[in-house]
């Protein structure tokens, strides 16, 4: 099935969870990354149980701190 990550189409296996997708996408420090699926924030403890569906739109939101001194 196909999902969109940011503005990029991606093919993933049926039954892939948000937690698995973070691994597949090699997202660094996933604990400090906010995930949204179809305009809904996914709680960190719901990543294992949130199964992605065909056509889902996933966003990873990263902390960015600098201002910068």
């Amino acid at each position: 099935m196909h999902i969109t990550i940011a503005d990029r189409k991606s093919e993933i296996a049926d039954g892939t969870t948000v937690a698995q997708l973070l691994e597949i996408e090699k997202v660094e420090m996933p604990l400090y990354v906010t995930v949204s699926v179809n305009d809904e924030f996914i709680a960190t403890d719901a990543r294992e149980t949130t199964v992605l569906k065909d056509g889902d739109h996933v966003e990873f939101l990263y902390f960015m701190g600098g201002g910068c001194r």
Partner: peptide
């Protein structure tokens, strides 16, 4: 805070001082 909930632990996420930044991006 809706997006990021809480500050990450100190040094968990790099700062510009540690990781650098291109001036023009600022």
């Amino acid at each position: 805070r809706c997006v990021f909930r809480e500050p990450p632990p100190k040094d968990a996420v790099p700062t510009c001082r540690q990781a650098g930044v291109i001036g023009a991006v600022a």
